[in-house]
Design a binder for these strands. Structure first.
Lengths: 341, 341
DNA sequence: ACATGCAGAGAAACCGTTTACAGGACGGTG
DNA sequence: CACCGTCCTGTAAACGGTTTCTCTGCATGT
């Protein structure tokens, strides 16, 4: 069922049909009703390809994301999808598993399909490749990469500031050695966390000699690392983990070894999750505005799509701040406040 | 950059360019190389719309899913995306938030865009609407709906069998009253769970008088319900929850009230999650083959896409079985076995 | 020398829209 | 009555590919 057949059945020309759909006010109300009736009767829907072919716009964006299992990523997806839907855009979803070759392949796919814009979440692609895409006229935004990555047009959560505040919070309690447990997978992020952490420690007048243990993320790895520390009798007074998975693993290891928290080991995580509030003791963590990050990415992207004619050609940045969720795993705040009273 | 310009630059006709891309063997190797060189130099990529317009195939499928936050759904998405990528298909992702009107809207979008197939996850759409789409020539599969839903071409996890086995497991320990905590949101699923549960109880020679408490899912609601039961002194000997969130809530409530598990309250969940194995005691649960479900859906869908000419017109079903993960929250199995030794 | 077959390349029709342009009806005005 | 503007509608040319059909040139066999 194409526009010509509908036109024939309705006894009008194809132009009229097209106008009924795109500029209804230009056509006589009774003709319009009649055409609409025929369209419904034949359940006709206009062919997207033919439309896209001469409009040159696809009303489609693409989202490249390394995985979907992380809660943060889910919320980013949700946020960006919401913005897209409200603008009448469809979204291609590409799970890149963090592999550069799959990203490359997905990017080719996006260019072929003439998407109107692309959002990269924590991409591993060389920036030159992305620039090339942008030169082909497709706006691109990066999510979760910060300005040190060499990319422009990006939005991210300020992990440096977050780590700084979280570390300051721990320092309030006067803990001795504070360790940092990072995650090899997210190197850009790790650098930021380390910077914020170091700044806070240095400001407190100490040398930054606290060691950092690099490991992969996840509950199991947190458990293993903590267990090893306990066995070697090498436990710090406080530990900051890059992810909530690691934190939960550490907590479990401490529980299993009968180590009191926060008395013998204070714990804080750079990312929050519902479980962090449920365990015993509840774990202090940074609540990431992930869903807002997704929406911010969407807004930035659509801003670039809709205002192509005023191209800025200058780095654009949106930075969101995480929120410190103080719970019991770092110590009793009230006690501290009483000390100062 | 279009095919005509490339043709002009390469000194050949458009047909040759097209053949280089689609039927390379039909064109002289040296011409082919030359054309490819020009294409790369101009970084030309064929226009997807023009292509789709006369091929009638879009190499795109759509995935309608009520939300992305559930772990099960993530895995389904991942599974189906993997299959699609390997087949060279792109996937439209539509988060419907479980609302029928957004589903309807998304479905219209999919028809407009002439997707080659659609996977509905736990859809709320009237089946007649889906049938209409199928009559328009777009293959559709349902994921997570069972045969009682009135849909055909579906794949799902056998919750009835799962509930049956889980209940039998609990009955092994000889518990008295066993309650079922369902989730109003997932009614089809609830009905299956109830059926399996009832069968198992009835088979054991008891009357199925155990009461069921309907509630919404989630940790908080599990906590509230359990707390209420404890206050009213109305705790069953064992409790089966529809979701792992609820189970964790119940566990927390029991811990807070000092109720020993499994001695005073045994607990099992119809869905597993990593946290279930981490809490104390670890919670017995059904491990759902969610990622396999996604892949199964993908296979079923592509089977219908690729073999349109042999249309079956007959219900097709793929049923996957969940796996019982026995942990500590229902009692010590060894003890039971010793009794029988 | 000539018929035959075949491989490679070009011309043109087609896919289903949108839209610039043109045309026709109608009513009001000089 | 001629003229003009306003409204509505129709015609036809894009958009950028794919593919069918046709044509050319060359090698082969007789």
């Amino acid at each position: 069922m194409n526009i010509r057949k509908v036109a024939q059945m309705a006894g009008v020309s194809v132009a009229t049909i097209s106008r009924v759909l795109n500029h209804p006010e230009q056509v006589l109300p009774e003709t319009r009703e009649h055409v609409l009736a025929v369209m419904k009767e034949q359940n006709y829907t206009p062919n997207w390809f033919a439309r896209g072919l001469n409009l040159g716009t696809t009303k489609t964006i693409a989202l490249l994301i390394p995985d979907i299992e992380s809660e943060t990523h889910q919320k980013i997806i949700s946020g960006i999808e919401t913005v897209a839907r409200n603008k009448g855009y469809a979204v291609f979803f590409c799970n890149t598993h963090g592999k550069a070759d799959i990203e490359e392949e997905s990017l080719d796919m996006c260019e072929n399909r003439r998407v109107d814009g692309i959002a990269f979440v924590s991409s591993n692609l060389p920036e030159s490749r992305v620039l090339q895409t942008r030169e082909n006229g497709i706006p691109c935004v990066h999510v979760g990469k910060n300005r040190n990555s060499g990319c422009d047009t990006l939005c991210y959560i300020d992990f440096e500031e977050g780590a700084y505040r979280l570390t300051r919070h721990l320092l309030t309690f006067g803990y001795g050695r504070i360790d940092l447990l990072l995650d090899v997978a997210e190197c850009h992020q790790s650098a930021q966390i380390e910077a914020g952490f170091s700044n806070a420690v240095r400001e407190s007048g100490r040398a930054v000699e606290s060691k950092r243990v690099m490991e992969e993320g996840g509950v199991q790895s947190g458990y293993t690392v903590a267990q090893r520390m306990i066995q070697r009798n090498d436990l710090p007074a406080a530990l900051i983990t890059a992810g909530d998975g690691q934190a939960l693993g550490v907590l479990k290891a401490a529980q299993d070894a009968g180590i009191a928290m926060p008395q013998k080991l204070a714990l804080a995580s750079m990312t929050d999750s519902p479980v962090c509030g449920l365990v015993n003791p509840p774990v202090t963590a940074l609540e990431l505005p992930a869903s807002k990050l997704g929406m911010a990415a969407g807004r930035l992207l659509f801003d670039n799509i809709e205002n192509k004619e005023f191209e800025l050609g200058v780095p654009q940045e949106m930075v969101l701040q995480p929120k410190l969720k103080i719970r019991k795993s770092c110590g009793n705040l009230k006690y501290i406040y009483e000390l100062f009273d």
